[in-house]
């Protein structure tokens, strides 16, 4: 049986090279926590999108930045937190993407934040002392 609370952490450079490592780290713990395949897939994708956004937007593809990925759980919920020290995400500038319009304008992406919100039960963004945090929660 899983312990009532537990936390785990890895730190990686902000590079897409580490995407599968980060996804697998989180998915392994999500599966051990007892989520079904679809729930594990949801968490895996949400973490991918959050980490990709940090690489592209917070650090603007400069690979010297670092990202900390922490995860933990109690009996009823599983959370993943990503921390970076790049440019903060402005939540006020966010609006739900119009996919049809983006296709017509030949624009790609811009859908990661939307996906994270659909995949997880609660998503919180915070910036404090030049450290940005995205905390994503999935309920059991």
């Amino acid at each position: 049986m899983a312990k009532p609370t537990a936390t785990y952490k890895i730190t990686v450079k902000a590079s897409t090279e580490h995407l599968s490592k980060v996804r697998n780290f989180v998915a392994k713990h999500a599966a051990a926590f007892g989520f079904d395949q679809q729930e594990v897939a949801d968490i895996r994708l949400a973490v991918d999108e959050a980490y990709t956004n940090i690489i592209k937007h917070a650090y603007q593809n400069k690979e010297e930045g670092t990202v900390e990925i922490e995860l933990g759980h109690d009996r009823s919920k599983f959370w993943v937190t990503l921390l970076d020290t790049g440019a903060a995400f402005d939540t006020t500038s966010y609006s739900e993407p119009d996919i049809l319009k983006r296709i017509k304008d030949k624009k790609r992406g811009g859908v990661g934040v939307y996906l994270i919100q659909k995949l997880m039960d609660d998503v919180q963004y915070q910036t404090e002392d030049a450290c940005n945090t995205i905390r994503m929660i999935k309920n059991k």
Partner: peptide
């Protein structure tokens, strides 16, 4: 992930405007 979907988003208009299409098949449920 969405970066993959983004590739299809970026090129579908070009392909369709030339009378073609990108059709997708055999996806697993996930």
């Amino acid at each position: 992930a969405s970066a993959g979907l983004g590739v299809f988003m970026a090129y579908i208009e070009d392909v369709r405007s030339m009378g073609g299409d990108i059709k997708l098949s055999n996806m697993n449920p996930k």
